[in-house]
Design a protein around this nucleic acid. Structure first.
Length: 778
DNA sequence: TCATTGGGCTTTTTT
DNA sequence: AGCCCAATGA
């Protein structure tokens, strides 16, 4: 290879980045601060290996999302050429090892076409096991059990290991759920019989494969001479063991990560994997990337000031030579709807002033439920947006229903799919029949589908009519299986849709939701069509149904959307935003019990993870960051008081720009009552209101806590209410902070509902709720 | 067996 | 406020 190529490869890297790229053999760890070019290092390291003759088939790169893998592959293609990059083993743990597991399925007693159960499928199966065992579903909550089983699997605690561990059994007995082990056992058996693996199985079974079959382990050890793991801080124990096993022979292992961005503890990620890496291998080289290329000084420094509140961390100093940029705006809002409006109008304004594109903006939130208020506001402003995550396309009911048919054709033992569609559309096979079938399946050690096929011979105390319907159903599926031999995925899906009348079923309901469901099904069919067309270009692919199902089993919203270029504002959870960057970022809902989540306040570790989460959110921003919080928000259908997040308090104030003066910020509980309680409380109604009644002494944080508990009646006498608003009359001239000057045309309503119709000079007529409108009488 | 209704529960975060 | 499930009646 030529020297000039080598130097051009390196010319895109700073010194710190070059070192790990040029490191050839032996273990290395790269601690990479946010925005320090971590992906770039991985990309160039792989390219560099390939340039020095390492076969692309022997490089395994594990990323956190499939999207990250795709992008990295594309960048490597640009450096070394597409032909070679295509052969890299690059993808998420789940997708890479699903692929290997299919190859080796027979060794584990699974069909090659095993089904992958998503979270919903596992939950349903667990719920049904709990019910069949006659357990109280209020004590055995299926979601909790599912989480617990998942935790077992991620720690490599098999059913056998569970029953060998008295401590675990005792812990479950103490929590009044002694049957967890039994549920776990049945769940694993049922999955096995159904030829299905859940997400955790993809890792657990890989461990099983590598441990129990030394020749298989040797084969993959030999194949993967170089292994790279991105986002190593988010690997769990099961993933850790896979990496260890595979890298054991050559020890050419490179892990990249940032302990400060570890945010997946809840699904078993173990931060000590990255903290202990140097103990796991001999002669580990450690590299640090501390220069941030992404964000302004204000953002980097504010982020540092927040993460410094964590005790548990590797010391590093992230710095930048970028400009100062503007300060981080901290915006107070009244309600979640108001928060949406503030965000939307801010986006609108910046777009106008700075000629920005929609896709330069991102709105990040802690929980998916928060997207709604933002969406409403953006829609009103005609700002295009796209919500990522949440209920993904493939999780929608109408989509899962059609997919269930398809899954059943490929794997008739797939119990969850069968239960889903055996009576959808209705064909007279109800719950009681299904219960009998499940018992029959258990007694005869058959899969559910085989039980149905043989139902007439099995003495299941079913009447003749039902037996006929069952036979019709199994014949239907069997006939589709035969069709599947000759047709591609699209042809089969189309056939299923027509024969089952699935779309007709949806069309007859006629509601807007029904219409959108029909559209979704059509979109799925289009997607399958595209998939089949795409497969035609791949030499060893056929466009079969099982290929399609493999392809989508692990797909997320991020993956299947080819329209990356559409110009929309991004809406997503902070978790989903990891690894991404945007010029302007809004982080909304910075309130106690929301961010940090109320469920994460029990231990220091949980709180520190929330803080890292906020750190991740803030470090997504390149140029501008805006943080918002509300005084009250709709939760569980009720308007609930909110309190600014401790994370706002924790940031160094010199990087912040408060829209509400800091002193008001401290008085927040009082203002809170002023706005929402003041007018209507019985005592205040007839009391002459006094203006300007600000409390003069500064309450301490402790007192603030107490103040919040005082009800509005007691508060009334000290509350400051703008008397000018109370005295507002028709015909008066007023000033509004956003709409400018105007004239009051009409006043209507009382107390909290008092409204004024105001004609603004430059904004036209608006009907404003007085308790929200910050009006000044002129 | 099916369709409707009301009650309870929900909100972390995801491969 | 919305979703899922169980109970209820047809």
């Amino acid at each position: 290879m030529s020297l000039s190529k080598e130097s051009s490869l390196l010319s895109n890297l700073n010194d710190a980045q070059q070192e790990p790229v040029l490191h050839r053999d032996g273990p290395l760890i790269v601690i990479a601060g946010a925005g320090s070019g971590k992906t770039r290092v991985l990309t160039y390291r792989i390219a560099n290996l390939m340039k020095h003759g390492v076969d692309s088939f022997s490089i395994l790169a594990l990323t956190f999302t499939n999207k990250a893998a795709r992008e990295m592959k594309a960048r490597i293609s640009e450096i070394v050429g597409e032909g070679e990059a295509k052969n890299l083993w690059m993808g998420t743990f789940h997708s890479i090892f699903a692929r290997i597991l299919r190859q080796e399925a027979d060794k584990l007693g699974f069909p090659r076409d095993f089904t992958i159960y998503d979270t919903q499928d596992s939950g349903r199966l667990i719920a049904s096991i709990i019910k069949e065992m006659g357990l109280d579903k209020d004590i055995y909550k299926f979601k909790q059990i599912r989480t617990r089983i998942s935790a077992f699997k991620n720690s490599l605690i098999t059913v056998k290991a569970y029953f060998n561990d008295p401590d675990l059994q005792e812990a479950d007995a103490i929590s009044r759920r002694p049957k967890i082990g039994e549920i776990y056992k049945q769940y694993v058996e049922r999955c096995f019989k159904a030829g299905a693996m859940d997400f955790d199985d993809l890792l657990l079974r890989t461990n099983e494969l590598l441990n129990m079959h030394p020749p298989v382990l040797a084969k993959y050890q030999d194949q993967f001479k170089y292994i790279l793991v991105d986002e190593y801080q988010d690997t769990n124990h099961s993933q850790y063991l896979i990496v260890r096993a595979l890298s054991d022979k050559f020890q050419n292992i490179c892990v990249v990560g940032d302990d400060a961005q570890s945010i997946y503890g809840f699904r078993g990620a173990n931060i000590s994997n990255i903290l202990n890496f140097q103990k796991d291998y001999d002669d580990v080289k450690l590299y640090r990337l501390e220069q941030n290329y992404r964000s302004t000084k204000n953002i980097v420094n504010a982020a540092n000031s927040i993460i410094n509140h964590n005790k548990n961390k590797i010391d590093k100093l992230v710095w930048t030579s970028n400009t100062d940029g503007s300060k981080i705006k901290v915006q107070r809002c009244l309600t979640d709807a108001d928060e949406g409006r503030e965000v939307a109008s801010s986006i609108f304004e910046i777009k106008m002033h700075e000629q920005r594109l929609n896709k330069e903006f991102a709105v990040l939130y802690r929980t998916n439920a928060q997207s709604r208020a933002i969406e409403d506001a953006l829609r009103k402003r005609d700002i295009p947006y796209r919500v990522y995550g949440g209920l993904s396309f493939y999780q929608r009911k109408e989509i899962k229903d059609l997919l269930a048919y398809l899954r059943l054709i490929v794997n008739p033992n797939d119990e969850e799919s069968l239960k889903r569609i055996i009576n959808y559309p209705a064909r007279g096979i109800g719950q009681s029949t299904l219960d009998k079938l499940i018992i029959g399946a258990k007694n005869n050690d058959l899969s559910l589908f085989d039980t149905i096929k043989n139902s007439s011979k099995l003495n299941l105390s079913l009447n003749r009519g039902v037996l006929g319907k069952l036979l019709d159903f199994s014949d239907f599926i069997l006939s589709l299986q035969i069709e599947n031999q000759k047709f591609n995925a699209f042809e089969i899906a189309d056939l299923v849709t027509k024969k089952t009348g699935l779309v007709l079923e949806l069309k007859k309901d006629g509601t807007p939701e029904g219409v959108s469901k029909v559209e979704n099904v059509e979109e799925l069919l289009n997607g399958i069509h595209d998939f089949v067309e795409g497969q035609k270009e791949i030499s060893d692919a056929s466009g079969s149904l099982s290929e399609f199902l493999e392809d989508i089993a692990l797909a997320t919203d991020f993956d299947n959307n080819k329209n990356d270029d559409i110009d929309c504002v991004y809406l997503m959870t902070v978790h989903l935003s990891k690894g991404l960057e945007f010029p302007i970022v809004y982080i909304v809902g910075l309130e106690e019990d929301l961010f940090p989540s109320a469920l994460s306040l029990n231990t220091r570790n949980e709180l520190e993870e929330e803080r890292r989460l906020f750190y991740v959110a803030l470090t997504r921003a390149m140029e501008k960051a805006v943080i918002t919080y509300t005084l009250s928000r709709y939760r569980w259908g009720k308007l609930v008081d909110a309190e600014p997040s401790r994370f706002i308090e924790e940031m160094d104030k010199k990087y912040l720009d408060f829209t509400v003066p800091i002193s008001d910020y401290v008085f927040k509980p009082i203002l809170d009552k002023e706005i929402f309680g003041g007018f209507e409380s019985p005592k205040t109604k007839n009391i002459p209101l006094k203006g300007g009644g600000k409390v003069n002494t500064m309450p301490s944080q402790k007192q603030l806590g107490k103040l919040r508990k005082i009800n509005s009646n007691e508060m009334a006498s000290t509350v400051s209410i703008d008397k000018q608003i109370a005295e507002l009359q028709e015909g008066m001239n007023v000033e509004h902070s956003r709409f400018g000057n105007g004239k009051v045309l009409r006043i209507e309503g009382k107390g909290n509902d008092k409204k004024a119709l105001i004609d603004f000079d430059s904004n036209g007529k608006k009907n404003l709720l007085l308790r929200f409108a910050k009006l000044k009488i002129k």
